[in-house]
Design a protein around this nucleic acid. Structure first.
Lengths: 225, 225
DNA sequence: TTGATCTCTATTGTATACAATCCAGCATTG
DNA sequence: CAATGCTGGATTGTATACAATAGAGATCAA
């Protein structure tokens, strides 16, 4: 069985290589917190788990390192990145700028369909009250819809990377009482500004949204007041 | 000669692996336009050039792909990324936002020494009038000094990645007559706003600076008016 | 001549063997 | 007993063999 694993192990081998496959599985696992921050990940262990050799695993490791999800120290291997308080603050500072920019650009460039999509997500959101994990997922979709509506591939990539990094943090801010409803209102504000094609207002609304999310997050993680 | 290349081929093997070494050399080569956009790069060719096996070369390729400098198509290998007009526009849009943010944060967080450094670079700039390539290099240093003064590692990383991507474009905007002097004035405006700790002004000055740079670039590349 | 198909070579994707390094645990010594 | 140096096993870094694929050129029929 030299290379039949090539085809067997990756059920959805849709046009991509094994390296891509491993990358996806690892990214998902980190997002789902199956691998926790700080935890060491051994190449051989992943290789055995996914039924491939170490080579594609190493490829995936390098790309996850580039995304900041893994910390690779020479001869010591990989561990899932850990975020300290300062890093969380810096991450949110950047995210505030990028989300603001995305919302502003979305107000300028979004198609009708893309605007409608935003409001669709807000409705789905209302239907999921009381389920933090589901809310977090829908929230992510809403934000991704904004990113897409901005029509800037580099901005999109940067924001997706940032979201991945934030997934390293334990739990979601939707566990804070009242945060879900507040977030919903803020989303509405952003979406309406985009529909009005009011770029300035959209940017400000998005920045404010991230700012309050940051406060909730810091309180949750470090007990800030 | 199984693995003695490990030590021979990489003269400055300072604590890093061969993969890192190859990554650096390739990045430099792309920046220096030794490899031109669109050009195909073969693994074996690089491996032979640097006296290593294909394995570390592949590692470097993956990371350059993550940075957007290389485009890897399965079974077809790597080519240096090419930027079309739309991509240049999107790149500058993001850069405007990030540079603005960096300048604003620098106004808040820069130390005295970091502010002095900015003005040092401006002086060096004056001494290099008439040498486009040298001016471009000093310009890069000035901007990196701003990035550093912002004290946000994610922002720093994002901006450095963006600069790498812009290095894919042929020639520098300093070849446009009068651009050098204009850029110098704009740099002074940014630096002074930072020294005054005027975050808002610094952000606006930086955004304006990138905006005029973009115009010069588009004119140079596509003959825009 | 032209068009399609086929083969064959060049190149990438993957697996694996081996070298280099780190680290935990133990022995040794003061 | 504490500190230090050594040793073996575990793990990563690198090289290389082999499989899979794409693309260019040749072959052949119309």
């Amino acid at each position: 069985m030299t290379t039949d694993t090539f085809k067997q192990a990756a059920p959805e081998n849709q046009g991509t290589s094994l390296g891509e496959f491993v990358l996806g599985r690892l990214r998902d696992s980190i997002r789902a917190r199956r691998y926790q921050p700080g935890q060491r990940i051994r190449e051989a262990e992943v290789a055995q788990w996914l039924g491939v050799s170490r080579t594609p695993v190493r490829e995936a490791f390098r790309r996850l390192q580039a995304d900041g999800l893994l910390v690779l120290t020479p001869w010591r291997g990989a561990q899932v990145a850990e975020l300290g308080r300062q890093q969380v603050v810096e991450l949110y500072a950047l995210r505030q700028a990028l989300e603001g920019t995305a919302a502003g650009l979305a107000a300028e460039h979004a198609s009708e369909a893309e605007v409608d999509l935003l409001f669709d997500h807000i409705e789905q959101d209302q239907a999921a009250q009381g389920e933090p994990n589901r809310l977090a997922e829908i929230n992510r979709r809403f934000h991704e819809a904004v990113y897409g509506a901005a029509h800037n591939r580099y901005l999109l990539e940067a924001l997706n990377g940032l979201d991945d990094s934030l997934a390293l943090l334990k739990s979601t801010t939707y566990e804070v009482p009242g945060r879900a409803e507040a977030a919903r209102q803020e989303h509405i504000g952003i979406a309406e500004a985009i529909r009005r094609r009011d770029s300035e207002a959209a940017e400000q609304a998005a920045r404010a949204h991230i700012s309050t999310a940051e406060k909730a997050r810091l309180k949750l993680l470090f007990g800030d007041d």
